[in-house]
Design a protein around this nucleic acid. Structure first.
Lengths: 250, 250
DNA sequence: GTAGCCTACTGGTCAGACCAGTGCACTAGC
DNA sequence: GCTAGTGCACTGGTCTGACCAGTAGGCTAC
């Protein structure tokens, strides 16, 4: 107390400094998506390090989804537009290390989707309503076509709702969590033989949700969307976790 | 149509194969947290590649938060318990690159916090209620102590609620988004001179939320928590984005 | 028995090399 | 003149071999 405040020194690796600098340039807009980094040999000269060090930095940046490099490309690494791939990757890891249960994921989807519907009911345009309507139409056709087409149309509906919420974070998280959930239950889907009944019920539910969104009744749309998702996924969720899902159905 | 189905070959880099293998071992539980990887020179022999290739793979794994290596450690890289650090990093990048607006972030916090409260109202234990109570107590004391202590106590309250929701995804996302929001408004806080009034109002609001959680009234707790966060942050949000926030207040 | 040194490792970095692939300028043929 | 084809210069991916600073643990001297 009172003396000079020392803080522990952290030895910072050379490649980390390079990552920081390039990251800052990308996030600050100095390197917009589509821009090219200098070649590794140029970077090596600019940063005054060896090529291995430059490459380790580039590997980190690539793992974070900021750049991509192709062998032989005379232009150097390309700065990528942001994609949720890295987000997706780390969330998938989280789910695979078994820290996340299917119940938690479905619950999170219910939360996100309900919020998206709540916002969409207030902010949606006519074009977006038409898009949702079209998606439900494709769901109807897909009852005969098969599960894959049905699932794709279902995804399209929820995507349209998420976009109508005007919140990019909701859109991205919805997308990421959904694909993880679908991946987890992918094997189990073929097993259920009352699949057609489930699809028909789901279509009915989606129609009700859409009606609420169209009417501008956010709370109703949110409540219905939670119910829709619950009914659709509850069969895959272990019995012990279902109570937590029902807690969202008020 | 009808001929043999060829799929495009993707040249896969050597280091990617290494990443895959180690990643699989970690996620599959063969390498539990705390376990040590062989040394780089051993890995180089096991995978039949050069050390640079091994190192690039380790850099990627490190960027994903799966392992950590210390120079001089005779035991090789350490397998880490999962931490949301990577998730945090990619979401922060998203906020910075994709220009997530403060409004969107606050809106997302409102959604998460409301859901956490909804669930907590049903699932909370007495111990968790006591924890929330203690946090509010520290907020009261901090009105005099200063903003930092107040903010820390506020964080503790919301963390306790998130934990009580029993949903790790909600906890992690809450944590990540909150730290981004706090980072964005960090500079602006000192400016407001009616800070004390804002703190006192916030304490009152938190007390109401806690009462609802204690009473088991989830919908009420959710509604109040949205209002609490709205009132606390609306001053930092550009006027044009406030309408979207109000859309959540039903 | 313990304090301190020594050694055999570790990861971080460097230098220099080779290879397969790419884009572009140049050239041969029309 | 224009196009098709060919080199060439350069890229990233990988390898080899080396040096350094740091660490842990055994060994030695007290």
């Amino acid at each position: 107390m009172g003396g000079p405040r020392f803080e522990p020194v952290r030895t910072v690796r050379a490649y980390e400094r390079i990552v920081e600098q390039i990251e800052e340039a990308v996030e600050g807009g100095a390197l917009p998506p589509g821009a090219r980094l200098p070649s590794e040999r140029d970077l090596m000269a600019q940063f005054g390090v060896s090529r291995s060090t430059v490459r380790e930095a580039l590997r980190v940046l690539q793992a974070r989804g900021l750049v991509r490099s192709r062998p032989g490309d005379p232009n150097g690494a390309e700065v990528l537009p942001f994609s949720p791939a890295a987000l997706h990757k780390s969330m998938t890891t989280l789910a695979r290390v078994d820290e996340l249960s299917l119940g938690e994921l479905v619950q999170f989807r219910m939360v996100l989707d309900a919020s998206a519907n709540l916002l969409a009911a207030r902010l949606r345009t006519e074009a977006e309503l038409a898009e949702m309507d079209a998606a439900i139409g494709r769901m109807r056709e897909a009852v005969e076509t098969g599960y894959d087409a049905f699932s794709a149309a279902d995804v399209a509906f929820h995507d349209a709702v998420a976009r109508a919420s005007r919140n990019k974070l909701i859109q991205i998280c919805t997308d990421v969590v959904r694909s993880i959930v679908l991946g987890l239950i992918a094997g189990k889907i073929a097993g259920s033989d009352d699949r057609e009944a489930l699809m028909r019920q789901s279509i009915r539910h989606h129609e009700e949700v859409l009606a609420a969104v169209r009417a501008g009744d956010g709370p109703l749309a949110a409540r219905l969307s939670r119910r829709t998702m619950y009914d659709y996924y509850v069969g895959y969720v272990p019995a012990g976790e279902r109570a937590a899902l029902r807690a969202l159905l008020e």
